[in-house]
């Protein structure tokens, strides 16, 4: 009986999960082996041609490198800031609730709204950053229009948005550390920095790994801001893989090539799932 009940209870969710996760995944893989169809020439099987085109596509490599820099630029800084924030508010502090709120509020905003706010900071000449710089005699700069600074500008904004979110996990972990540990260090004569480096930080390692892997996954999914700030430009200098997939499918209407790009993204996510499985679940499971 329990088999029947089990499957009956699962069925409604299973239909939707299969319909919008497993089936489209297989369809994506299938479509990647077909040519782009048009009214004159129907789509036909072309084997690995789309993959060859992808590996020869300079924009594909450009967006992949951008994704890498975007991840490298946002993640370590966000994690360090998040840990700092958590340590700062995990102690007696006047106005602690306000400080914590200030750190966490950007997390609750949609990326689109964040981009709207920051767009003006980066506007050349009249934007806030250029206004402030002009006070010390530095002339205006087109932060989002210059390929050299655009990714950096987006990275700074993303750090602002994400650090408070990661702080939450560190706060939760810090609250679970037994206070006797600090007492023991004190008796041993260890200073606070020493205590942090030798006791707190190692004990937070599971949290750091959890945050790290989630941050890497997020860095591939987070593209909303590009719609407002740059549309991937100038000259793809700020384009990211998922945005490129969107453009290919919905601006250039090449769904088969978009499917091929999606397979690349799925491959990367699968690698991360493996990393998560081996790093988090096997080695540092904490309860």
């Amino acid at each position: 009986m329990k088999h029947v009940y089990g499957w009956l209870l699962l069925t409604p969710a299973a239909i939707l999960l299969i319909g919008f996760t497993h089936y489209p995944t297989l369809r994506t893989i299938g479509e990647s082996f077909f040519s782009r169809g048009s009214s004159l020439r129907p789509s036909r099987f072309i084997g690995l041609d789309n993959y060859r085109a992808m590996f020869d596509d300079p924009i594909f490599w450009k967006v992949l490198t951008n994704n890498l820099w975007f991840a490298l630029g946002t993640i370590p800084t966000s994690i360090i800031l998040a840990l700092t924030m958590a340590l700062l508010v995990n102690r007696a502090l006047p106005g602690r609730a306000l400080v914590r709120m200030a750190f966490f509020t950007p997390t609750i905003l949609p990326m689109i709204a964040v981009a709207n706010i920051w767009l003006f900071f980066y506007t050349p000449d009249i934007g806030l950053i250029d206004q402030i710089l002009s006070l010390v005699g530095i002339s205006g700069h087109n932060w989002l229009g210059d390929p050299a600074t655009v990714l950096g500008a987006i990275i700074v904004m993303t750090i602002w948005k994400e650090a408070g979110f990661f702080m939450i996990f560190y706060l939760a972990a810090l609250q679970h550390l037994p206070p006797e540990l600090r007492e023991a260090s004190r008796l041993e004569g260890a200073g606070r920095w020493h205590h942090f480096r030798r006791v707190t930080f190692p004990l937070l390692m599971p949290t750091t790994l959890f945050v790290l892997i989630n941050a890497v996954i997020n860095s591939f999914k987070l593209v909303d801001h590009l719609f407002i700030l740059t549309k991937g430009g100038p000259n793809n200098a700020s384009n990211l893989l998922l945005y490129y997939i969107f453009e290919t499918a919905f601006s250039y209407f090449d769904t088969n090539f978009a499917a091929t790009l999606t397979v690349a993204l799925l491959f990367l996510l699968a690698l991360m799932a493996l990393a998560q499985f081996y790093l988090l679940d096997k080695r540092v499971h904490y309860r």
């Binding site: 996760t21 089936y23 489209p24 994506t28 999914k221 993204l265």
Partner: peptide, 18 residues
Amino acid sequence: LVQLMITPEILIVENYAI
């Protein structure tokens, strides 16, 4: 659990078709 990693917006092309 696959859906934790492959969220619907990743499969935007095929999900739109569906």
